[in-house]
Write a protein that binds this DNA or RNA. Structure first.
Length: 227
DNA sequence: AACTCGCGCAACCGCCCACAT
DNA sequence: CATGTGGGCGGTTGCGCGAGT
């Protein structure tokens, strides 16, 4: 992969970190295939990207997870399943890798129902179609007709991972941008009239069908606060 | 002090998707 | 439409380290 013959693997040295950091600061994130050459690193693009996103990126919170974060993580996992990047997007400063590791290390052991599953049916824990919202619809949210009057956010595909904002991270303004819905306040999700908005769809309808489910089948009205 | 064991986390791997050509 | 490429993601691995014996 990546034509990575002879590419260095394993732990990153401080020198490599500095090279990568200065490269990203100079050229910005993205164009990861160019980063190894630009930075003078004998690493593959994916390794560079991962090191930056999970370790070197500013604002990463490497402290212990707070109770609030853990609580939110559990609720998000119930809603999204193993969509670690989406979950991490709701936890400021946390990376998908951190969330994934924390879940696998601590939470999975603590949840009694899942502990039973681990012994008997480990693969089924997060794959229950009736309780997990698949991610696909979220990714095309910016194409929804009721968002058409918004600016073109097409360059910010992962915007949904940024605090639930459907606008570009740099452009969004929570107070003014109606494309916001605060996932942290689940009542908004619950009360959002999905059917009404979906009825207005005229394009890309097929993209809303996920594993024989339509948007109306997606259980946004589930009571996330039940345990 | 030496060894074993278990845990946590950083990093890799393989796959998928979007987009350009 | 088919193919190639880059970006991104989730699953998994394995190293390093601390605790226990």
């Amino acid at each position: 992969m990546d034509g990575s013959l002879g590419v260095r693997k394993g732990a990153w040295s401080k020198v490599e970190d500095e090279l990568l950091r200065s490269c990203v600061e100079q050229y910005g994130e993205g164009k990861w295939h160019l980063v190894p050459k630009r930075a003078g690193l004998n690493r593959c693009r994916k390794s560079c990207r991962l090191r930056w996103l999970n370790y070197l990126k500013p604002n990463i919170n490497r402290g212990e997870f707070t109770e609030e974060e853990v609580d939110l993580m559990i609720r998000l996992h119930k809603l999204l399943g193993n969509r670690w990047s989406l979950i991490a997007g709701r936890l400021p400063g946390r990376t998908s890798n951190d969330v994934k590791n924390y879940w696998n290390t601590y939470i999975r052991k603590k949840l009694p129902s899942q502990r039973e599953d681990i012994n008997e049916r480990p693969k089924e824990i997060v794959r229950e179609p009736s309780s997990v919202i698949k991610p696909q619809p979220w990714n095309i949210s910016t194409k929804m007709p009721f968002l058409r009057d918004k600016e073109d956010h097409s360059e910010d595909k992962e915007c949904i991972t940024n605090q639930g904002c459907l606008a570009t991270a740099s452009e969004c303004n929570k107070e003014n941008d109606t494309s916001w819905f605060d996932v942290q306040d689940w009542t908004l999700l619950k009360d959002f009239n999905w059917d009404a908005n979906l009825n207005s769809l005229t394009t890309n309808v097929e993209q809303f069908v996920v594993e024989d489910q339509s948007w109306s089948d997606v259980p946004f009205n589930i009571n996330l606060w039940d345990t």
